[in-house]
Amino acid sequence: MRSLSAVPMRVAQSLRWFAHIWRSLRRSRQGTIGLMIVIVHMFIAVASPYIVPYAHHDIDGKNRLAAPSAEHPFGTDSFGRDLFTRVLLGGRAAIGVALLAAAIAVLWGGLLGILLAFIGGRVDEVLMRLVDALLAIPGLLVVLLIVVALGTGFSVLILTLGYAYGVTTVRVARGAALGYVASDFITAARARGERKTNIVLRELIPNLLDVLLVEYVMRASWALTAISSLSYLGFGIAPPTPDWGRMVFENQVMLAISPWGTLFPVFALASLIIGINLAGDALSKAIGLDRSQEAPT
């Protein structure tokens, strides 16, 4: 039976958790810097449609490949499009894809990993072998193959990246959950005769939230790298949507004449990914996790 006070208690609990995450980030200088970078980027991603001076497809025919000026703060590209506008807008699609893909990855990968640790035995063994085999195929290759077959719509990109990065999450979540499965409070819960779903939902998952959060932050940064690389290669976010990865590709040929179209999106993308990683690293240190054992695939 659930009492009426359960809901406010839940809210208070999650607020406390967020406060604890915030504090652990702020404790380290590295984490603070990372957090600030990410916040600035998130603000721009949300607010950019209201603050950009031009439309992303507006063409200023008289000013092609222009250097930064009062009229075009970041200069213009070879069509005469305003780079300030395009750089400010250029992260929205990629960030959206990355955040959603990472959420999917952590959701299915985390849940499956925790369940496997809890169930153990033959099922665990067979599925983990399968996971190991799937890791032998480079993640970006899998994404490339699926995207080519199903097209580069947003939902395809999100689901594919969500699948590809979830495979690694299974291992991490399983490893973290194994540490708890044998612990006293789980044994106690089993002895009390609690239902298995309850043990997983009420005992295991709350204890793994920190690990899953770090996992989410890392997957988001990898997904952002992956989607930007795909866009760069021409298999990701398609024009006319402005995107940093695609912008670097389009403007790279003009590097010798006008480097601005390459340098500004490069700076925008690199700063965001570095910011996420600085924050993620500080977070994992704060909660006593060793994140450096993982590697992007």
Partner: peptide, 15 residues
Amino acid sequence: GMSTPEFVIGTLLIW
């Protein structure tokens, strides 16, 4: 170094 995408490092080197 680890978080900067390879195409970004490559492009900067070209530049």
